[in-house]
Each structure stands twice: as structure tokens, then as C-alpha cells.
Amino acid sequence: MKFKAMTAVVALAISAPLVFAGGADDDTLAIDGEEMISKTAAPAHMEETGIDTIISGWHFREDDTQSMQTDSFDNPGMIFVDQAMDMWSTVEGEAGESCASCHGDVSTFEGLTTKMPKVNEDGELVVMEDIINNCRTERMQADAWKWSGNDMQSMVALIGNQSLGMPMDVAIDGPAAEYWKQGKEMYYTRYGQLELSCANCHEQNYGNYIRADHLSQGQINGFPTYRLKQAKLISKHNRFRGCIRDTRAETFAEGSDEFRALELYVASRGNGLSVETPAVRQ
């Protein structure tokens, strides 16, 4: 941050037209003292995009928002992780089971989030919410949770937090290939009356301001993220929905097959970045 800002001031002094300091900052992200991989070489499949470094959304936020994420005690999203910890061992449903009665300690899920979304034995692309709801309805005989509801996103965050710092590593080949292709096509589709694609904003213009928003690469390694404005955890599909709605488009539903495919593709653009769940956003 400091260095970039200084160069910007120098540039400002030299060139008359007002240029605002764009781009990612140069800070390093450590959470509870453990350094995160928040910038790294782009995965091979991104060669044609012109992006050679993938960057966590953390680098595009203001200092005060950033600092909340560096210490688990200061991170307001951790309250939801704690709540999910309580739910983890709570018996619910006809079967008389809890998550803990089948899985033991939640730490056994270390690394799982780095591989999500993935294709299951039936050849279907599944995301974390699917796995959780499948356990609830099939194994616990309890009600399914609402996709972007507090219960669901808190549990997604608790499981994600077990992989904190581990690099994302979703598979895009084999049975995942066709889903990945579908997601990629969506990423470059210019939706809505404004005719804007994900790539228009997050590939061509990351680092630039669009009105008051500092555009990031639209990475999902920090999701669910805690959004200060809404004071709750935001799901990946909720974010996708909002971004597409803002192009004056008919959006897709949370939990739709389209968003599963898009999630796989967007996750693959972050392969190599640390899981930061739950990240903090303004």
C-alpha cells in the first residue's frame, strides 16, 4: 500500500490529469501470524487471459477492512464459524444424528474446500452446499438449509476455515471438463442490457474503480465472505447473482446448475491462492 501510494503521488505531480491510484496493494496478508498466498502465478489454463498473477480480493480493500481479516478475534465472520461449531454437534432430524456423530472432529475436513466444487460418483458437479444438504436430508433426515441462509453459510465457512491458508486446487479435467467449459462460457458471456461479462469487469478492469467500487479479480477463495454492510456471511452464488443483476440482466438462481458450473470455473481461476474463509469485505 505505502509504496504504490507514493508512486501514485509522484505520478500525479508529474502528469497534470487526475489519475487515481488503482491496482492491488503491496501489503502481505497474514492471518493469526500465518502468511497467506494472496498473490501467485496464474494457473496454466489462464494463459490466454493476459493475467499472469492471480490476486486475492483482500488486496483491493481499504486498510481498515483488511486489518479485520488478519486476526481471528477481530474478524466478525468468526462469530458465524463459532455458531456453526455448535451446530456441528447438535442432533437434528429423525435419524437422531449430528454432523459430529458421523464425522467426528470438523478438522477431518481439512483440505476439502480446496477441492470444491467437484464431480461426485454420479457424475454430477457438487458444491459444498450440496454436500451439506445431502447429509442433512439423507443421513440426518432433517430439513434442507436455505442456500444463502445463516445456518448454511456458517457451516460452509466452518468447513472452509479448516483449510485456512491451503492453496485452492480444483480439478478441471476428466469428468469436470464439460462443467468447466460451461462455466468458462458464462464467464465471457456479456449478459443483460448493459452487455457486460464477468471478464469485462474482473479480467479487463481489475484494479480500476467503477464508481466507488475498487474492482478486484472476482476471486472466491475468501467465500463465504463477511460483508460489513450486511453484517452477515455472503455466499458465492449470492455474489454471482448480484453481479449479473447489476448488468440489467435476468440473473440465475442460487443453487442453479449454471451457478455450480460458474463456481467451478471461477474457483479454477484461483487455483494456487490460499483459502481465506471467512474473508472480510466492506
Binding site: 449478459y191 452487455e195 449479473i244 440482466a249 435476468e250
Partner: peptide
């Protein structure tokens, strides 16, 4: 000519 045009910024179809 636009893809999935919405009803303003409601996210619903136009």
C-alpha cells in the same frame, strides 16, 4: 440483441 435482458435492476426477466 442483449442476452437475458432484465427488468431494470430487479434481476427478473424483461
Amino acid at each position: 440483441g442483449s442476452i437475458r435482458p432484465g427488468d431494470g435492476y430487479t434481476g427478473k426477466a424483461a
